[in-house]
């Protein structure tokens, strides 16, 4: 279990991570979602004891990461697949890291097999594609057979084959009952792999919820209606309690209707002899829902700053008078 309490990291006057509190429960895949620059990597580095928090704490099973003896047996992490010495062979790279935690060369061979790099184990990493480096980074994370795995943007920059491989890997390690904490700036990626979601924007927690609840909460459902007499139909539907907007989809006049289901809309149109050319139930994509969520966090922050500013100047004026 990973616990993060009031975690804050300031660089000068900007807070990269701002009072973040959440728990990554054991035995599940928890997605760590946020736009680029939201503070995901900084949070992960603090969890791993690489960056010191300005305030707050991050704990692994109740202890700071730095207190772990031979931490690779507890936590495996892949932060940046390119963070390797290109002149070293894949095997030597793994061996050096393994030895530091008392892990033998046999296990190095095993993880090389597991990630499909056994054939290139004695080649220098310099010649590896990003996909191969990603596999090598995963091999590093798996070395100590850890119960917690942390991956920072594991699909970034990968080709479709690499993406498929990472997804399969996340699912298989989760099926083994491991705790997986994986960051992404892509909601669609999370939707495929995560059970639980932690969403941050500008270093602050926006949502901490199960994937299913997030989908329920955020999917905007509506019915797309096309009709040559759209304006007339819109009045009718509004009178029946629906919210109607003009839909900006291409094609002939279209309406986005919420509050009524397709059947009711069809019945109403038929009763008034209005022809209907299309009637389609729609979901806003998770990606859109996520964008909406993080956008509003940005707005919220701007607003709260303005308020703070007003309060400060009021105070200042008060002092003057």
């Amino acid at each position: 279990m990973i616990e993060v309490y009031e975690l804050t990291k300031r660089f000068g006057s900007t807070a990269a991570v701002d009072g973040l509190t959440f728990t990554v429960p054991s035995g599940r895949v928890t997605g760590f979602l946020g736009p680029n620059g939201a503070g995901k990597s900084t949070t992960m580095r603090m969890i791993l004891g690489l960056d010191a928090p300005t305030s707050g704490a991050a704990l692994i099973d109740g202890r700071p990461y730095a207190d772990l003896r031979r931490p690779l047996h507890k936590v495996g992490a892949l932060l940046d697949a390119n963070a390797v010495h290109g002149g070293r062979t894949a095997r030597d790279h793994l061996l050096a890291i393994a030895q530091s935690n008392g892990i033998g060369p046999g296990r190095v061979r095993e993880v090389l097999d597991q990630v499909g790099l056994a054939d290139v184990a004695r080649r220098r990493i310099r010649g590896f594609s990003l996909g191969m480096k990603q596999r090598l980074g995963v091999a590093v994370a798996l070395l100590g057979d850890p119960e917690i795995l942390i991956f920072d943007e594991p699909v970034n920059g990968l080709d479709p084959e690499g993406i498929r491989w990472i997804r399969g890997l996340l699912r298989s390690v989760a099926a083994e009952g491991r705790t997986v904490f994986v960051s992404s700036h892509l909601m669609s990626e999370m939707a495929l792999t995560a059970d639980h979601l932690i969403v941050i924007g500008r270093g602050r927690l926006i949502a901490n919820t199960s994937m299913a609840a997030f989908v329920r909460m955020s999917s905007r459902r509506y019915v797309l209606v096309r009709s040559p007499r759209a304006a007339e139909l819109a009045d009718l539907l509004t009178a029946d309690g629906a919210a109607v907007e003009e839909d900006d989809e291409p094609g002939p006049e279209a309406l986005a209707v919420t509050g009524l289901d397709g059947g009711r809309i069809g019945d109403l149109a038929a009763a008034h002899h209005i022809p209907i050319h299309e009637l389609t139930p729609r979901h806003a994509s998770l990606e859109e829902a996520f964008m909406e969520l993080t956008d509003s966090s940005v707005d919220f922050r701007a607003e709260s700053r303005a308020k703070l500013h007003t309060a400060e100047s009021a105070h200042y004026e008060g002092a003057l008078s």
Binding site: G49, L50, Y65, A66, P71, A77, D80, N82, A83, V140
Partner: peptide
């Protein structure tokens, strides 16, 4: 310095926090 320049130092320090 080669570990710092490549970023490998993070892997090193994550494996050995001391």
């Amino acid at each position: 310095s080669s570990e710092h320049t490549t970023g490998l130092i993070r892997t090193t320090f994550a494996a050995v926090p001391h």
